[in-house]
Amino acid sequence: MRKKEEQDLNDAGNSPPKEGAYVLRLFVTGTSPNSIRAINNLKQICEEHLQNNYSLEIIDVYQQAAVAQSEQIIALPLLIRKQPLPERRLIGDLSQTEKVLKGLGLSL
């Protein structure tokens, strides 16, 4: 299960005053409850706060076990903000929206 949702980067009107687009990677474990919740929560947050200014890659670690070592994965679900730098890591089902926004640098 590998989803890749590339959003169009042209529409950057509502994006926060940060340069560049958001490159996000979400690591999940199949269809575990935490994973489903995380995917849903993230999508919602992205829709609300990033609109089209982001790219999201959802990776199932079960299917790509090698990536777990290379990405230093321990706790899942894990969301990594690859861009903009510095890299940020968020673990959990992303249900605490405030913390997610803070972690992504999208504080209101």
Binding site: T29, A38, A66, Q69, I74, E87, L90, G92
Partner: peptide, 23 residues
């Protein structure tokens, strides 16, 4: 693992560790 790099945003588990170790 570095606490300063990680933000906890809800329920999680250590499946990553299991997968890594299992692999």
């Amino acid at each position: 693992i570095d606490r300063t790099e990680i933000e906890e945003t809800g329920e999680y588990d250590l499946d990553g560790l299991f997968i890594r170790l299992g692999y």
